[in-house]
């Protein structure tokens, strides 16, 4: 069995929630994807809570029988991301900079969000959400990169136009060796 999460919430089938709540959360993710496609990075960053944990473990090829638990690095291991609010803030300064060569000229990004599974937490208005992501990145003349990933999020309801903030995001990328020359955007 694939050991994908320290949070066991993601390992059991969620109980059904109301169609309206499902709709509300899906709309939140579609809006988030649009902010990224439109390069509205400051607005995108405002969806993160002050205590955000934004991380992506490394993934390696392992013998599934014996050593599946080694497939992902843990929270003490190296990763593709290991960010808090302050370091994400620095990344936003870079991606919006005129001298950030990896995103000036900018990538053309499309995040397709699907498979939205929602678990209610014990705390009111907190949800664990698993989404599947297809990310397409095209830049300059011909460079095109595809990524598929699962995002395991914890989101919290807030009283603003977007409706939620992201408290934790764990990105599980479906690649071992990354087949791109960098990750200069966000998942």
């Amino acid at each position: 069995m694939l050991d994908t999460a320290s949070q066991s919430a993601f390992q059991v089938k969620p109980e059904l929630i109301s169609v309206e709540l499902q709709h509300e959360i899906e709309q939140f993710y579609y809006w988030e994807a649009k902010l990224m496609a439109d390069r509205r990075w400051e607005e995108w960053f405002s969806l993160m809570s002050k205590d955000i944990k934004y991380w992506a473990p490394l993934r390696s090829t392992r013998s599934h029988a014996a050593e599946a638990k080694l497939e992902y690095t843990d929270e003490k291991g190296f990763g593709h991301f290991a960010d808090n609010w302050s370091s994400l803030d620095g990344r936003i300064r870079k991606i919006t900079s005129d001298v950030g060569w990896s995103e000036n000229p900018a990538s053309r990004l499309r995040h397709i969000v699907g498979n939205v599974l929602i678990w209610k937490d014990r705390q009111a208005d907190v949800y664990d959400v698993s989404t599947s992501l297809m990310t397409y990145r095209n830049r300059q003349e011909r460079q095109t990169d595809f990524f598929a990933a699962e995002r395991q999020d914890r989101i919290r309801r807030v009283d603003d136009a977007c409706g939620f903030e992201i408290v934790e995001r764990k990105i599980l990328i479906d690649q071992s060796t990354l087949l791109s020359n960098n990750i200069s955007f966000f998942f």
């Binding site: 190296f78 990763g79 370091s87 950030g100 060569w101 990896s102 020359n181 960098n182 200069s184």
Partner: peptide, 22 residues
């Protein structure tokens, strides 16, 4: 750990631009 992921990795705010230039 945190700072090398942040700076000298595929997503690193330094390494991103090296990959771009080469």
């Amino acid at each position: 750990r945190r700072n090398m992921v942040r700076t000298f990795s595929a997503s690193g705010v330094f390494e991103q631009d090296d990959g771009e230039n080469w």
